[in-house]
Amino acid sequence: MLTYKNGLTTTLACVLLSFAASQSALASAEDSAGEKILPVKVIVSSVNSLQYDKHLEVARSSSKYQELTSLFHNARNLTYDIDFNKYAVIGAFMGVKSTGGYNINIVKAIQKEKNNRKYIEVYVNSEIPGPNCMVTMAFTQPAELALIPAEPRTDIIFKESYEVYKCR
């Protein structure tokens, strides 16, 4: 008889856990249902930009885009026919660093919705050399421009992360 109660208790516990797990998965799917991962196309990346301050920026016009591309030595003649009613250009500038080994990347963009209002979170990662890394002894200004789909009135929020990489 004791075995029957333990078996019943175990079965009841399994049913309750399954129900709880399915409810949790359903809630998670509902939370992420309004999210959409957007493609990020890198336009230009450099460790020697002409932007000397740390700066994150969104270009929503041709003139602003040209201003951002003029900050890259390797992008002066870069021409993209961008429809700014459908796209935005993201600029990520790390500022002046006293050595090489630094890098900045526009990692991903996720469109989200809250209170029936769409917005985009753009994730930017800065890579920093660890104390044991051999680096170039020269000033650098890492930067990157990327293209993402974005409607003109969509808010763009930057999410920054920093990663110190280790060397032998």
Rank of each mutant, 00 (worst) to 15 (best):
N6R: 10
G7L: 11
L8A: 14
T10Q: 13
L12H: 09
C14S: 12
L17Y: 05
F19K: 10
S22R: 06
S22N: 10
S24H: 07
L26S: 13
A29G: 10
E30C: 06
S32W: 06
E35T: 06
L38C: 09
L38Y: 06
P39I: 10
P39K: 05
P39A: 10
V40A: 05
V40D: 05
V40W: 00
K41Y: 03
V42A: 04
I43P: 02
S45M: 03
S45R: 07
S46R: 09
V47A: 15
L50A: 12
L50P: 03
Q51D: 03
Q51N: 11
H55G: 03
L56C: 10
L56R: 05
E57C: 04
S63C: 01
K64C: 04
K64F: 00
Y65H: 11
Q66K: 15
Q66T: 07
L68E: 07
T69D: 01
S70P: 07
L71G: 07
H73A: 14
A75H: 02
A75L: 04
R76E: 06
N77F: 02
T79H: 13
Y80R: 12
Y80T: 10
Y80A: 14
D81Y: 02
D83Y: 00
D83A: 07
F84C: 12
F84E: 08
F84L: 11
Y87W: 04
A88Q: 04
A88D: 00
V89D: 04
G91W: 02
G91L: 00
F93G: 14
M94Q: 15
V96I: 13
V96W: 01
V96A: 14
V96L: 11
K97S: 12
K97V: 11
T99A: 08
G100F: 11
G100T: 15
G100N: 07
Y102D: 15
I104S: 11
I106R: 02
V107E: 12
Q111M: 08
K112A: 03
E113G: 05
E113Y: 01
K114A: 15
N116Y: 08
N116Q: 14
R117N: 14
R117F: 03
R117T: 15
K118V: 02
K118G: 00
Y119T: 07
E121A: 08
V122Y: 01
V122K: 06
V124N: 06
N125E: 15
N125S: 15
N125W: 00
S126C: 06
I128H: 05
P129I: 13
G130N: 09
N132D: 13
N132I: 06
N132S: 14
C133M: 09
M134T: 14
M134K: 14
M134E: 13
T136Q: 13
T136I: 14
M137Q: 15
A138D: 08
A138V: 12
F139A: 12
T140M: 10
T140G: 11
P142S: 15
P142G: 15
L145I: 08
L145W: 01
A146N: 02
L147D: 01
I148E: 00
P149K: 03
P149Y: 00
E151C: 03
P152F: 00
P152N: 01
P152A: 02
R153F: 05
